[in-house]
Design a protein around this nucleic acid. Structure first.
Lengths: 228, 228
DNA sequence: ACCGGCATTTGAACATGTTCAACTCTGAGG
DNA sequence: CCTCAGAGTTGAACATGTTCAAATGCCGGT
């Protein structure tokens, strides 16, 4: 798998975009597995080889999709983050927006998740190649937390964005399996769990629980350390 | 993908076993991805087609491996479960035995996990084809819990085995990534988290926490419901 | 001993992700 | 207008998971 190339000319830009657009459309129409690289190249009006010139593998198209979705997500939550100050509302709105943004891709999201969960894949969320995107998402959650009017202790603040990112992945895994109409069960789960999270963050400020908080944070850090 | 066939003759038994043994050895030697079905058939001394007669796909060989490992695990913890009555010790010993049993396969465990995490795969842990094995593992944790001298409320008891099964999967995911010598970090994590779990189960008996316990269990059930 | 049916075995054919060496196009420099 | 380096493009070739129709082996019944 050779490294893919960044287009340097307008022509190249056009080809790369056409390939990605075709892939996105076909993934939606037929799902990930049933979409062949040949079909993508055909619809994009380029040859099979050209696809591999811009995307090192079929999985790399998924990474691009992932990043594309992230942009949609950012756009969707911009107003909310600018307006809302309540922590629970900010988290709930952000995570709800994730599943709403991803809704058109629900049918093939399973395949994507598998790609992304595979430790052997260079694209898995803990891996090197997805670091840029991961950092961006974690950074987003940092903003979600910092922009709220809730006072959060520094030691919690430093772990919370990563934890929320993991939480979002958990929600997405639930959502993939959710067959309820309108994905209502996922939305309900988000409401309940964000409530719970914010309550826990609040409780952590109680002096009585200082001990538990320290040991919980130590545990979290020991899990995170060495990963990434 | 046609359904695989159960061998009905001694000859068939022999072929099936040879194929599985060859696959296991090759997975260990070269990893999952680099092991081809042709290489498996070659080493087993059968034709390519025969492999597909007994295993519907390469992934089904993984499911068999999974079940094989479960047998090893059962054998490993038999004495412990017969002797030990302390809940924390039973859970810790059982989960420690999982990672110890899987240690020889650590290098290709990532690929297996990916297979198993893929919602599109018929083998994923929530799917139909892995139900038998899943029920067996959950049943094992039921025994782990019931055989302890800790008093556990019925409503918790009914969810705990499933939760412990999920917990074990989480530990395995951590273990896959663990590069520490002797996998000491995973073992330490198991010790800390089993401690925590048992403490939580104990706390849940306090009348003060009855409310939280009810709502936590409601959440767990709402997550589990509809899955499986 | 022969036969019929069924389990088992076979390997060629197929589908599809990936590689690669050769070809074409473009635009800057002369 | 010519040259040419390098970006872009191409499709054949390859590797490997999977399918399938045909061949083979085995065994009980006659």
């Amino acid at each position: 798998m050779n490294a893919a190339v960044q287009p340097l000319t307008a022509r190249g830009e056009h080809s790369r975009a056409a390939i990605f657009d075709a892939a996105l459309a076909l993934f939606q129409e037929r799902g990930y597995e049933s979409t062949t690289m040949r079909a993508i190249a055909d619809r994009a009006g380029v040859s099979l080889g050209s696809s591999y010139h811009y995307f090192a593998s079929k999985e790399h198209l998924v990474l691009e999709f992932y990043s594309h979705t992230h942009q949609l997500h950012l756009a969707a939550i911009g107003p909310l983050l600018a307006r809302e100050r309540d922590l629970a509302a900010r988290v709930r709105g952000t995570v709800r927006a994730v599943v709403v943004t991803c809704e058109p891709f629900h049918d093939f999201a399973g395949a994507i998740f598998s790609t992304v969960a595979n430790p052997a894949s260079p694209l898995n969320p803990f891996g090197r190649e997805s670091k840029a995107l991961r950092d961006e998402v974690i950074g987003l959650y940092a903003e979600v937390v910092k922009g709220s009017d809730t006072r959060i202790a520094p030691d919690i603040m430093s772990e919370l964005p990563t934890l929320l990112w993991l939480y979002q992945m958990g929600i997405l895994y639930f959502w993939i399996w959710d067959r309820s109409p309108g994905r209502l069960r996922t939305l309900a789960l988000i409401d309940e769990t964000t409530e719970l999270i914010v309550r826990l963050v609040g409780l952590a400020n109680l002096p009585v629980l200082r001990g538990s908080r320290k040991s919980a944070l130590r545990l979290v850090r020991s899990i995170a350390e060495g990963q990434f």
